[in-house]
Each structure stands twice: as C-alpha cells, then as structure tokens.
C-alpha cells in the first residue's frame, strides 16, 4: 500500500532549518538542459496551448518568444535576506541570479554557500519539467510573490 523511496530527497538534513535559498549561475553547458522552446503565444509546453494568460498579469507579449527580466521581491528569511532576478531570452529562462544576499551571521553565510551549488540544476529542472502549475504550502501573498509560480507567471512561461 505504501511505498518508500530508497533514495532520500536530500542528504543534507542539517540544512532543513534554513527556510529557503535561491541560486544564481550562468549556463555553463548551453541550453541543452532546458525544456522545449516555448510555443507561440503564451501557452507552455504542457497544459492548454492557450491564448489566455493568468488573469492578474499584464497582457501577453505580441511576439511568440518572451525576453526580459523580472525581479523577485526582497524576501526576509530567518537567517537573512535574499532577492532574485530571473532573465529570459527567446522564451527560455537563461539565468536566475541572486541579486542580494545578506546573512545574519557567518554560520548562515557558510550554509548559504554550501547549499547554493546544490540548487543550480533544480532551478532549471522546474522549467524543464514542463509543468502547468506548482502545488505547495504557500500561506501568504508575500511568499507567493517570491515563489517559482510567481516568477513563471510574470514571464508568461509555463
């Protein structure tokens, strides 16, 4: 009835206490890891090939490929402050950069440095997974604004 995965989700149990860390890097091996190019209009790789963007956002871009930047709000965590900028070219996320990282103390900085390299592939993994939406425990509007779902909505990428 219940199955248990043998490979743990994360080996770093000690990092569980850190609320969240965002990562930035430039593509080293080209865009091969990214998912299929976004189709025309604002539809994504999965879900309806729709022409209607989410209600709360600005109208869809006239061209079929989205380029631009969006900045996430400065987010205050238990150990410091982070904000992230997402840059897209030709309909693909090409970089996610930490624009501001302030840590409360040396220990937090050390954790942040250890965790950041582990997160690199996972940020792009979410996009290459070609998802239509994200389900997670998001209790506040502020947390939503800092979330992956929000960044995807802003860039009209799915």
């Amino acid at each position: 009835m219940t199955r248990v995965r043998t490979a743990p989700l994360a080996g770093a149990a000690a990092l569980v206490g850190l609320a969240a860390v965002l990562v930035g890097h430039s593509l080293e091996n080209g865009p091969a890891r990214l998912g299929a190019a976004a189709p025309s209009g604002t539809g994504g790789g999965s879900g309806p090939g729709g022409s209607s963007p989410p209600a709360a956002t600005t109208p869809p871009a006239a061209s079929s490929k989205v380029s631009g930047s969006a900045s996430g709000a400065l987010e205050q965590y238990g150990y410091g402050e982070l904000s992230v900028a997402v840059r897209a070219e030709g309909g693909k996320i090409v970089s996610v950069t930490v624009t501001k990282l302030l840590t409360a103390d040396q220990y937090s900085q050390q954790i942040a440095n250890e965790v950041i390299p582990m997160l690199r592939s996972e940020v792009l993994h979410a996009q290459s997974a070609q998802i239509s939406a994200v389900s997670g425990a998001t209790y506040t509007s502020e947390a939503y604004a800092a979330s992956l779902q929000s960044a995807l909505d802003k860039l009209h990428l799915k």
Binding site: L9, A10, L15, V16, L18, A19, A20, V21, L22, V23, G43, S46, G47, P48, G49, V84, V96, V115, L119, E122, V123, H125, A126, A129, Q130, I131, S132, A133, V134, S135, G136, A137, T138, A146, S147, L148, A151
Partner: peptide
C-alpha cells in the same frame, strides 16, 4: 484535461528549496 486530452502536469514544491520541485504529478 490539458492539451490533447493529456493529464495536467503539476509540480510539487520542494519543502526547503524554494525554487525547486520535489516531484511532478
């Protein structure tokens, strides 16, 4: 359904890596 009668793909947010997914359902 999603396009072409396919099921929707929903990412489940990773509990402590904010920009990552734990899995897709």
């Amino acid at each position: 359904p999603a396009t072409r009668g396919q099921p929707w793909r929903i990412g489940i947010r990773h509990p402590w890596r904010q920009e990552a997914l734990a899995c897709v359902v």
